[in-house]
Write a protein that binds this DNA or RNA. Structure first.
Length: 772
RNA sequence: GGGCUCGUGGUCCAGGUCGGUUAUGACGUCGCCCUUACACGGCGAAAAUCCGGGGUUCAAAUCCCCGCGGGCCCA
């Protein structure tokens, strides 16, 4: 009997053929029915090469969700999208072409961004296809498409009309040389030498004074309170007292706050709008009213009195002189200060309040908490990230950005009276480049308009993904069938952003939750447990790894190494060595391919034993698959296949399967059981390693794809775990005995079979060549 | 600074809710072995202060407290 599988090892090259087979047969196409299972797939962001290997692992697992659901009999809708809005591509483009966004023609800059995205996107699509993602690539979407941006704008217009959007002044990082708000990502820190000025502040109605140290004395005019550490006994007596600010003579309260460090300066800190990020946090937390001391031109404003019009640095020099002249200075120290610097203009940034659009969210918090409670989280513990975040929300969401590559805010303003005009939803608008859709201002009848130049925060786009994939506003019938989606799979680090914003936006628009389940994956770290980054040089490029080891190896590594929800380490060697298991599976199948497939057989005791263990495995796998935790089935299947089925059962029944010294009936029992076990293993493993299982399934059992089969159900057989232990121990004993006697495994030996193993006597005798 | 989370052989990981056998398995290392699927294999061996300290208990990797270290998010 020759094996029908002739190659001696699994060849990852076969994956390409199988991919084509799936594509040709269109086995993953989606037509909405009644039992739809919609996956709100995260659209990855093409931010630069290489793509993160942790992300490749992440998408592998999302595909396992799809395949698990499909084999559970669900009609799976698995859309694929690419997220293309936002800052990273702008920075990438500026760097690549050595240009500055604000100094480049907007249309030209957008085109450069678009072509950069196209290149990066191609590689991501290639990786996703190669790792076996069973999504609908033919219809993949982009968040910067006209269709998508129309949705983002329409939802904004809807919320505008409902009064959920407002304009407000809030502090932002500001680079006054470039004249733009900058993101935290664009700030670097430099240790610069600066003066720490110890100033005397009088306590009101006493003759006492306290010393306050500051590197920004020019902001004294914007000082709103003085803080000391609650445990700082030097100041206990002054808590709650009014303090007189030098020069301005303003009265401010002295209060306690844990952020004041006793050992820095005098331990007492003046809180000004805005010296640093801590000031921003304190103004917000203590609900202080801000004073704008620095304007958009980077100069002191009129609240600075005599110092108005000066640059902060000049004002600092002058105010130190004046403080000294008036006897307000105790001493001045030269210190090294960690100063935030704009990455582009290399100047210290200022924190300046700017007018931006906000989406109301504070009043939705309770509703979102309730929705959060209704959604099943996998794993449960990560629901806490959302709940903690909801607890800490204390401002509304700033949604406007002074950037180019994003969805435009669809507003025009009357040139004469500034009245805003928001157009009708259902169309994609570019106000910076298009005429206002109305000809006359509703308020003053003027005919001239100015288009809004700002774009949305990219989360405004990403947060409506469940609406986009369900064709909200585009196809009502489709929408009704697939919304809410079944599951949102995503990474842990964006629960506070993507997951939360999606809940908020979808609730505001539909009044419903966007999905019934959320699946949260941990974070991919390097082999030492450090975050991967290009600058550290520890980033692993997934493409060569997948090409070398094959998608199934990579996927099995991902399933067997990553416990769901926890952070995981990526190690190329580990990935490569996972191949050994696939090799084992391949050779088990190759062995079985030399026996005919028979419909039924009468299992003997050995057969019944492995079938009961198999049934136990089915149960164990179901437990994992039910919560989309692939770690559980991966480990259990490997353990069973390698350490029970191959190592013990196959060895026990080999002679019987060949029919040597056994009756035909006994032989058929073995062959029947072998195939039953293998076909079950293949099905159990199919969601995790779709390629090799498909190949073996086709080669041995059926030409119809394994991914169209129903998952195996447990038969609830009685489990004989004490027998298992005895068999393993007995086999080990025989092998050791032969070894110590320098015998080959095919030599005969005389060892007594324990009583409990009596039912397996004939199989064990033939396996070990035991003498009577 | 705050929140969440993790810390078990050289490496990765199980066990932890609900305290009780000899702490699971894989990778790697070493030794032996061609055995009618597989040398990408088999058998076997060495390898662990279960991060540190304290507490509860007859009994702690597991429960409690305090530290230390890593990671993520927020500030």
């Amino acid at each position: 009997m020759e094996p029908t599988i002739s190659e001696k090892a699994w060849n990852p090259e076969l994956e390409k053929k199988i991919l084509k087979q799936w594509e040709d047969e269109k086995i993953y196409d989606f037509i909405p029915q009644e039992n739809n299972f919609t996956i709100d797939t995260p659209p990855p962001y093409p931010s630069g090469r290489p793509w993160h290997i942790g992300a490749a692992a992440h998408y592998s697992q999302i595909d396992m969700i799809a395949r698990t659901a499909r084999m559970a009999g669900k009609n799976v809708y698995f859309p694929i999208g690419i997220d293309r809005n936002g800052l990273p591509v702008e920075l990438y483009t500026e760097k690549k072409h050595k240009i500055r966004m604000k100094e480049t023609d907007r249309n030209e800059f957008l085109n450069l961004c678009r072509s950069a995205l196209d290149d990066l996107e191609d590689e991501m699509i290639l990786i996703m296809k190669n790792i076996g993602i069973s999504g609908d690539f033919a219809n993949y979407y982009r968040t910067d498409s006209e269709e998508y941006r129309t949705l983002t704008q329409s939802t904004f217009i809807d919320l505008w009309k409902k009064g959920q959007i407002y304009l407000a002044n809030r502090p932002n990082n500001y680079d006054w040389v470039s004249g733009t708000t900058i993101a935290d990502a664009e700030i670097t820190y430099e240790n610069l030498s600066t003066k720490l000025v110890y100033m005397k502040f009088k306590i009101k109605d006493t003759d006492k004074e306290i010393i306050i140290a500051s590197t920004r004395p020019e902001l004294i005019c914007a000082c709103k309170t003085i803080i000391v550490n609650p445990e700082d006994e030097r100041y206990t007596q002054y808590i709650g007292k009014k303090v007189i600010v030098p020069i301005t003579n303003a009265e401010v309260e002295l209060r306690t706050h844990h952020s004041a460090k006793q050992e820095f300066g005098s331990g007492a800190v003046m809180v000004c709008s805005y010296g640093d990020q801590n000031d921003v946090a304190l103004f917000r937390e203590l609900e202080l009213e801000e004073i704008v001391a620095i304007g958009l031109d980077g100069r002191m404003t009129k609240v600075a009195g005599n110092y108005a019009g000066l640059k902060p640095k000049q004002a600092r020099t002058k105010i130190i002189e004046d403080l000294e002249t008036n006897g307000f200075v105790e001493k001045i120290e030269e210190i090294i200060h960690r100063t935030p610097i704009s990455e582009r203009s290399k100047i210290p940034i200022e924190i300046i309040p700017m007018e931006e659009y906000y989406l109301k969210q504070k009043e939705s918090v309770e509703k979102i908490k309730k929705l959060g409670q209704e959604i099943t989280f996998h794993p449960t513990m990560h629901k806490q990230i959302l709940m903690n975040w909801l607890e800490s929300i204390n401002i509304d969401w700033p949604i406007s950005r002074r950037r180019y590559y994003g969805t435009e805010i669809p507003i025009w303003y009357c040139k004469k009276c500034s009245e805003p005009y928001v157009p009708e939803p259902g169309k994609y608008y570019k106000p910076w480049n298009e005429k206002c859709p109305i000809s006359n201002c509703i308020k003053c009848n003027s005919t001239e308009f100015i288009g809004e130049e700002r774009t949305f925060d990219t989360w405004m786009d990403s947060s409506v993904s469940p609406l986009f994939i369900s064709k909200f506003n585009r196809d009502d019938e489709f929408f009704k069938k697939v919304y809410p989606a079944s599951i949102r799979p995503q990474a842990k680090d964006i629960v506070r952003t993507w997951l939360y914003y999606t809940l908020l936006r979808c609730e505001q628009i539909t009044g419903e939750k966007p999905w019934t389940e959320a699946w949260i994956m941990g974070y991919g770290l390097d082999e030492k447990g450090m975050k991967m980054s290009k600058s550290k040089g520890n980033a692993i490029d997934p493409l060569p790894v997948i090409e070398k080891s094959g998608a199934d190896t990579f996927r099995f590594w991902s399933a067997s190494e990553i416990n769901h929800g926890y952070d995981f380490r990526c190690n190329e060697q580990k990935i490569e060595s996972t191949k050994k298991f696939l090799s084992k599976l391949w050779n088990v199948s190759r062995f079985l391919s030399s026996f005919p497939i028979i419909e039924s057989g009468i299992p003997n005791e050995s057969d019944k034993w492995i079938l009961s263990e198999l049934d136990n495995l089915v149960k164990e796998c179901k437990k994992g698959y039910d919560e989309y935790n692939f770690f559980i089935p991966a480990i259990a299947i490997r353990e069973f296949t390698w350490n029970l089925f191959a190592a013990h059962y196959i060895e026990m029944v080999k002679a019987r399967a060949y029919g040597i010294d056994f009756s035909d009936e006994e032989r058929d029992g073995a062959i029947f059981t072998l195939h039953k076990v293998l076909s079950t293993i293949l099905k159990l493993l199919a969601p995790i390693t779709p390629f090799i299982t498909e190949y073996l399934w086709n080669a041995l059992y059926s030409k119809e794809s394994i991914h169209k089969q129903m998952q195996v159900k447990a038969e609830n057989l009685e489990i004989k775990s004490d027998i298992t232990k005895e068999i393993l121990e007995f086999n080990s004993k025989v092998w050791n005995e032969k070894k110590s006697q320098n015998l080959s495994l095919k030599d005969s030996i005389k060892i007594e079979i324990p009583k409990i193993l009596e039912p397996f006597k004939k199989d064990l005798e033939s396996m070990h060549h035991l003498e009577d």
